[in-house]
Amino acid sequence: MKSIEKEKKSLKRDMILLGVFVVTGLLILLFVLLTGQNGKSVEVSVDGKTVGIYDLNTDRKVEIQGLNGKNYLVIENGEAYMEKAECPDGLCVNMGKISRQGQSVICLPNKVVVKIVGNEAEESSDDIDIIVK
């Protein structure tokens, strides 16, 4: 009839596949840690267009005009975080502080992406993993 899970089915294959998943996850972790030097600047983009690049080591507050509302970004002590956001879920505020290259805070409703970048030169070769167009 229909395929029902067989109890006697060997666990080995499942363990192998799950192991592959865990190892792949750890490789991603390794990749993130290795490429994650402390960034030098904060790049803000709205709807894919860069609207500003700010020095990560200069404390300041930035008001970002997103597609559906404003986001308030704070740069402080070499870290950046979203202080307030005019969006329904406020998830970006909960994403916490970022300081390492490649880390980002994303606000989907306003299409705002705040990303930590390093030098422009290492930027291009360093943190791009996949480009899907």
């Binding site: 991603i28 490649g102 980002s104 992406v113 930590i116 791009i128 899907v132």
Partner: peptide, 25 residues
Amino acid sequence: IIVAVIVLNTTGIAWYLLILWFTGM
């Protein structure tokens, strides 16, 4: 994530991929 890369036109999401990979598991 693939859609996010296309829509937001950003590639700085390795960190995000890491979190979502494990939470997906």
